[in-house]
Amino acid sequence: MTLLSIDWFYLVEKILLISGVLVLSLVVAMYSTWGERKVAAWIQDRLGPNRAGPMGLLQPLADGGKLFFKEEIIPTHSNRFLFILGPSIAMMVACMTSAVIPWGDTITVAGRTVSLQVADVNIGILFIFGVVSMGVYGIMIGGWASNNKYSLLASIRAASQIISYELPMGLALIALLMLTGTLSLKEIVEQQRHGVWNVCLQPLGFLIFLICAFAECNRTPFDLPEAENELNGGYHLEYSSMKLGFFLFAEYINMFISSALIATLYFGGYSFPWMDSLGWGENAIALLGFFIFFLKILFFIFVFMWVRWTIPRFRYDQLMRLGWRILIPLALANMLITGALVLLRQH
């Protein structure tokens, strides 16, 4: 159906997909808070939340309800507009990345081929990179507008940390791009579907990317911007009610998206071994692929939590040394070796 030279079915399909992905991100983020507390408890030989609902499964709802009904406090000497802008940017940027991630293969519904990806742009990786580099603004603006020295310190830490770790992340991705020869995430997944997972070809690149993903999500051991015991919570120190919730929520969404990205780039995305020899219908394979992709994501979310409850926080100078003097040279070496090998294979 086309009207006003717009394919309305296409529009509806995309809107459905966008809302689906958004709801999925939010629900996963919500239950990541529950998962985080459970994993933390289990690692520390405790039980974790088990009062609200069976296994404490209603705990995220209780937490969310609490955050909604808390009194909202805006400090008198803060910049009101920027104070509200900070968490909004953090939340928006966190949700934006999911647009280019291929959640599954194409499915066919009523004669229409629907791609389970919101936008297959030919610069997918760069898009993610651009959005991730925006993520720091939420923290910086929020921290500065709070007019509090701890928040300001956290903003400054966040800014320098994210800029420092974007470089090795980009360099690790460049090595990956040399192998795949494309920036489109969908094509990267399709290549892995018919070949081997990229992690086998780029183990060092994967490690660097993983470490940088931790840093970009402000997760332990790189949680200096919120360092509870030095900065009283850092950039969200002055925040209360749902604005605090947005900041915390954005971190969990970032974690979800980072896990999705790691799974897509290095672990075959929605593809799985013997995918093409199962002999099922296209739709069934696509749905199973989505399910397996989801399992991969959940595993990496678990890794994020597992690391958090194992490794203590870096000191600031250690953080900078790791970024600039270890990861960047390593990433450069990885890039050079990959380039040389790609050239060798071509000749």
Binding site: F129, G130, S133, M134, V136, Y137, M140, I141, W144, L152, S155, I156, A159, S160, I162, I163, E166
Partner: peptide, 12 residues
């Protein structure tokens, strides 16, 4: 993503 972050950093 990079230059303006540094600008903001200095301004703050």
């Amino acid at each position: 993503g990079a230059i303006m972050v540094l600008f903001l950093y200095v301004m703050m």
